[in-house]
């Protein structure tokens, strides 16, 4: 489903991702582990179209560079480490969820929002709240709902639980595991803790200094 071919990212002459190739089959998930600064998050950012790269990123055979932002968002979405920083502070949850649907001209908006919110285990009364009125776990659930609202097939998860308490982390991992099973979703997951990657991913690769060292559990 997802193929990276000789992916290289250089910013200001510094090579952050160094000639990486990897494949993720539909329904499979791949975990990237490695120390801070090893380039894990930059790989996700390249796939999400947030940084320039050389090499090829193919999604279901289509070169990502030939896709518009709109077309990319329907296929691939991203969940960041800290939803405080990734959700608009002055938009309610309802507005955060409605925005992608409006941009993509979807008709049955309320129905989709209700479904997305139920799927991540939030109640409808939270729709009117702003990010700062949610707990860390609720905020991350809202961010996952937003990432899922266009029904993408691949989620890019960048340390999705490392800003959370241990018990909340366990709940979010349960949720991600269930969504993967029920929707046939694939994840490309970046995490520090191998035990977290092992829960969600069939395959693991370790990154060091921008290079991918194939590993496995």
């Amino acid at each position: 489903m997802l193929s990276l071919r000789n992916l290289t990212v250089a910013i200001d002459g510094k090579i952050l991702v160094d000639n990486i190739s990897l494949d993720v089959a539909a329904g499979d998930s791949f975990g990237l582990v490695g120390p801070s600064g090893s380039g894990k998050s930059t790989v996700l950012r390249a796939i999400a179209g947030l940084v320039d790269y050389s090499g090829e990123i193919l999604f279901e055979g289509i070169n990502m560079k030939s896709l518009s932002n709109l077309e990319r968002a329907k296929r691939i979405n991203m969940v960041f480490q800290d939803p405080y920083g990734s959700m608009h502070p002055r938009h309610t949850v309802a507005r955060a969820l409605a925005e992608p649907l409006i941009i993509h001209g979807m008709a049955d908006r309320q129905e989709r929002i209700d479904q997305a919110i139920a799927e991540v285990g939030l109640t409808g009364d939270l729709l009117g709240r702003y990010p700062h009125q949610l707990s860390g776990g609720q905020r991350q659930r809202a961010a996952i709902a937003r990432a899922l609202i266009l029904k993408p097939r691949l989620l890019l998860l960048d340390e999705p639980t490392s800003a959370l308490d241990m018990t909340v982390q366990a709940d979010i991992l349960d949720l991600l595991e269930r969504l993967k099973r029920t929707h046939g979703l694939s994840y490309l997951l970046v995490a520090h803790t191998p035990a977290i990657v092992a829960r969600l991913c069939e395959r693991i690769g370790r990154m060091e200094n921008g290079r991918l060292i194939p590993d496995g559990c």
């Binding site: 018990t167 366990a170 092992a198 559990c217």
Partner: peptide, 12 residues
């Protein structure tokens, strides 16, 4: 007990 159960563990 719940805190201890929440510690992520490797399956292998």
């Amino acid at each position: 007990q719940r805190l201890i159960q929440s510690i992520p563990r490797l399956p292998c």
